[in-house]
């Protein structure tokens, strides 16, 4: 028996050495190679968006530009915290974030480079940093998904605030732990104020809303008629439609609250160049994401809204960006999620 374990220890040593050797010489393992390559002038990107989504796009970028990219993937907030810890010695030149809040936090800490005016001019002003330090890449809208068999279009609420009224008792699905529900509440706090948001949340809570694990489950429930309404992001319906073979195969529809309603907040995925890391390569990367190829890719893969003019993604029934209204928000301010979570905790919507 002791011999067996002595052998185990040896096996461990051999595994470590062999695997290390395989990594070092084989060339298949990207680890050390990329680390070395990064120092050799590669563009280092931190991506808060999923590798399965962004990876193919980065390969297309390298193909078009000839610029090699090394990427660290992680959650947007974790990467933002990592960038804050790294300070000016960060290996990263570019940060691609899932949401504007993480970019806002880095901007406040003085960690982002000013972007050139003509880059910022590519997208409508409300989808970029007011300080010009990050730029939106793709947009997503909060919507009310509803079942037309259960609700006539004419009876739809004119504002998200109406959902606290008695006729919506027990009829609205929501995903309390979902980041996009939380940023919707943050948007409401920023535009309508703390008092009104608290009153809305308390009324909403007392109206017996139905909690779901995620947005996709809400869209399923609405589509099947289990509930008439749901508070979700716009693209879940389009993803379901592309799986089902078209929007006409589904019952559920998206509804945008008219006017500057917090229920129709538009949030973005954004990109920024880290302070002191401005280079032609970094700028080329940002410009590529704002070009037609990347914009079409985002729209077709994720069913998000392209943010530049003149892109026609092959997503049937996706309304044009210009039809969106939503509240006027400086998206950088959506970094006050902590207060939102505290408020949701107090109200009891968690």
């Amino acid at each position: 028996m002791p011999r067996l374990l002595a052998r185990t220890l040896r096996a461990l040593l051999v595994t470590g050495l062999l695997a290390t050797a395989a990594c070092g010489s084989g060339g298949d393992d990207p680890a050390e190679q990329l680390a070395a390559a990064a120092e050799a002038g590669e563009l280092v990107v931190y991506s808060g968006r999923n590798e399965n989504l962004v990876g193919p796009l980065l390969e297309m970028f390298t193909e078009v530009s000839g610029i090699e990219v090394a990427t660290r993937y992680g959650g947007s907030a974790e990467l933002a915290a990592q960038l804050l810890e790294e300070g000016d010695r960060t290996p990263a030149a570019v940060f691609l974030s899932q949401d504007a809040g993480a970019l806002g936090a880095l901007q406040d800490a003085g960690r982002l480079e000013q972007l050139p005016a003509d880059t910022l001019a590519t997208v409508p002003a409300q989808y970029s940093s007011a300080d010009g330090r990050w730029v939106g890449v793709s947009g997503r809208s909060r919507v009310l998904v509803y079942n037309p068999d259960l609700v006539a279009a004419a009876d739809l609420p004119k504002s998200v605030f109406e959902l606290t009224e008695p006729q919506y008792d027990g009829k609205v699905g929501y995903a309390p732990t979902n980041a996009s529900f939380q940023s919707f509440v943050t948007g409401m706090r920023v535009t309508a104020g703390e008092e009104r948001t608290r009153a809305f949340l308390e009324g909403f809570r007392d109206n017996d809303p139905k909690a779901y694990e995620g947005n996709a489950l809400i869209v399923d429930a609405v589509n099947e008629g289990a509930i008439p309404f749901g508070l979700v992001n716009h693209y879940y319906l389009y993803e379901k439609a592309s799986e089902a073979g078209g929007l006409d195969k589904l019952t559920a529809r998206n509804y945008l609250f008219p006017g500057a309603d917090p229920g129709s907040l538009v949030n973005v995925t954004g990109v920024a160049v880290l302070a002191g890391k401005q280079s032609q390569d970094a700028q080329a990367f940002v410009d590529y994401l704002l070009g037609e190829q990347a914009q079409t890719y985002f729209a077709e893969v994720t069913k998000e809204f392209p943010l530049i003019e003149g892109v026609q993604p092959d997503v049937p029934d996706l309304p044009p960006l210009s039809s969106l209204q939503g509240p006027k928000v400086d998206l950088s301010q959506l970094d006050s999620l902590a207060q939102t979570l505290a408020l949701l905790d107090e109200v009891g919507l968690t």
């Binding site: 990207p30 680890a31 050390e32 990329l34 990064a38 280092v44 590798e51 990427t71 993937y73």
Partner: peptide, 20 residues
């Protein structure tokens, strides 16, 4: 996730990517 060399993948981080 935070400390592995740029571009490397373990089974656990791949799993995280897919469930993401």
């Amino acid at each position: 996730l935070l400390l592995q060399p740029l571009g490397s993948q373990t089974l656990a981080t791949r799993l995280w990517t897919e469930t993401g």
